Amino acid sequence: MSSTIQSVKGIVALVTGGASGLGRGVVDRLIRQGAKGVVALDLKFPDSSSSVDNVINVTGSVTSEEDVARALVEVEKHFGRLDVAVSCAGIGVAKRAYDFRRNISHPLEDFRRVIEVNLVGTFNVARLAVGLIGRNEPVGTLRGTLIHTASVAAFDGQIGQCAYSASKGGVAGMTLPLARDLASQGIRVMTIAPGLFDTPLLGSLPDTVRKNLASTIPCPSRLGNVDEYAHLVQSIIENPMLNGEVIRLDGALRMQP
């Protein structure tokens, strides 16, 4: 492995939200590109998604220290080290701060839950994963990479997205300080802010709604493919000068209110 261009081949990764959507796209691409192994952490895996030799499925929550620690034990037990942690686990709610038609405030518990999973969960994975990544012998000066998932909602939050936008804005906001915290150990930190992607969440919408959403994306005027997200994950791993930054992956989309 060169000290200037890193390689996905032979790496070991932890991917949260790895059962479906963006996370599963990352798992599949890393394995196709020659990763030594991936541990996928998620709340639930499809019955058809059994662990294979180089992909280990671990059921658990990113908000639980015990569950994340258990996933890292599996990483070390099966593969001996950790090079990359990719955080894709996330949830969302769509509620106004106050519903004036029904005279109901946004439930505080819903706001807390979104922050807990999307922001606290991302930090929980980061703070625990770097303990294992930091044990690696440096290649040049680098030991590994954290890649987080924000959203264009961090910047263009829509009506009803107070909780989601706040959580993703937090993920974006901690990217640079985390990169600075970990620089002395040769651990890079990057965040991807995807736009509208063809994930199971959007897959549950009617075709007319999906087409309308796709038409709002300037170019290419379609929903993103999960492998395009995963491709950017690969590019971040391979390019060592990418650090401390948030990359929008949205086809020039700017969300309207």
Rank of each mutant, 00 (worst) to 15 (best):
residue 98 Y to R: 12
residue 90 G to Q: 09
residue 64 S to Y: 06
residue 151 S to C: 10
residue 65 E to T: 14
residue 94 A to R: 15
residue 103 N to Y: 09
residue 61 S to C: 11
residue 175 T to D: 03
residue 158 Q to C: 02
residue 82 L to T: 08
residue 58 V to P: 11
residue 55 V to W: 07
residue 175 T to I: 01
residue 124 N to V: 04
residue 122 T to A: 14
residue 54 N to S: 14
residue 54 N to C: 10
residue 172 A to L: 09
residue 123 F to Y: 15
residue 152 V to C: 06
residue 134 G to L: 01
residue 142 L to P: 00
residue 152 V to T: 13
residue 158 Q to D: 02
residue 95 K to T: 11
residue 147 I to S: 11
residue 116 E to W: 06
residue 133 I to R: 05
residue 66 E to A: 15
residue 161 Q to P: 00
residue 181 D to Q: 10
residue 119 L to E: 07
residue 65 E to G: 00
residue 65 E to M: 02
residue 161 Q to M: 12
residue 128 L to D: 06
residue 103 N to C: 11
residue 179 A to R: 01
residue 174 M to P: 00
residue 178 L to C: 04
residue 159 I to R: 13
residue 123 F to E: 12
residue 65 E to A: 15
residue 103 N to G: 11
residue 116 E to N: 15
residue 132 L to G: 01
residue 178 L to E: 09
residue 113 R to G: 00
residue 172 A to F: 00
residue 115 I to M: 14
residue 77 K to V: 00
residue 182 L to H: 02
residue 135 R to D: 08
residue 65 E to R: 12
residue 129 A to M: 05
residue 59 T to I: 11
residue 165 S to N: 01
residue 53 D to W: 04
residue 177 P to I: 00
residue 118 N to H: 11
residue 80 G to P: 12
residue 140 G to F: 01
residue 173 G to P: 04
residue 120 V to Y: 15
residue 166 A to E: 07
residue 155 F to N: 05
residue 88 C to E: 06
residue 128 L to K: 13
residue 58 V to K: 11
residue 158 Q to V: 02
residue 75 V to I: 15
residue 139 V to R: 15
residue 102 R to T: 09
residue 149 T to F: 12
residue 123 F to A: 11
residue 144 G to L: 10
residue 152 V to R: 10
residue 184 S to V: 08
residue 121 G to N: 13
residue 130 V to Y: 06
residue 137 E to R: 13
residue 82 L to A: 05
residue 104 I to E: 14
residue 105 S to V: 11
residue 141 T to Y: 01
residue 161 Q to V: 01
residue 185 Q to G: 02
residue 140 G to W: 01
residue 141 T to A: 13
residue 54 N to H: 14
residue 61 S to M: 05
residue 164 Y to V: 05
residue 131 G to T: 06
residue 171 V to T: 08
residue 176 L to Q: 07
residue 137 E to S: 10
residue 115 I to V: 14
residue 75 V to D: 02
residue 53 D to M: 05
residue 85 A to I: 00
residue 182 L to M: 01
residue 61 S to L: 09
residue 159 I to V: 15
residue 71 A to L: 02
residue 143 R to W: 10
residue 109 E to N: 13
residue 128 L to N: 11
residue 70 R to D: 08
residue 106 H to S: 00
residue 105 S to Y: 12
residue 181 D to H: 03
residue 87 S to V: 15
residue 76 E to M: 02
residue 115 I to C: 04
residue 51 S to Q: 06
residue 157 G to T: 10
residue 84 V to I: 14
residue 139 V to P: 00
residue 78 H to L: 00
residue 118 N to F: 08
residue 98 Y to F: 15
residue 178 L to Y: 13
residue 92 G to L: 15
residue 90 G to T: 01
residue 150 A to F: 09
residue 143 R to Y: 09
residue 185 Q to V: 06
residue 74 E to A: 14
residue 147 I to G: 10
residue 183 A to R: 07
residue 118 N to I: 07
residue 167 S to T: 06
residue 182 L to G: 04
residue 175 T to S: 01
residue 183 A to V: 10
residue 70 R to T: 15
residue 131 G to V: 02
residue 83 D to Q: 08
residue 127 R to P: 01
residue 52 V to F: 07
residue 158 Q to F: 03
residue 122 T to M: 10
residue 158 Q to S: 09
residue 179 A to Y: 09
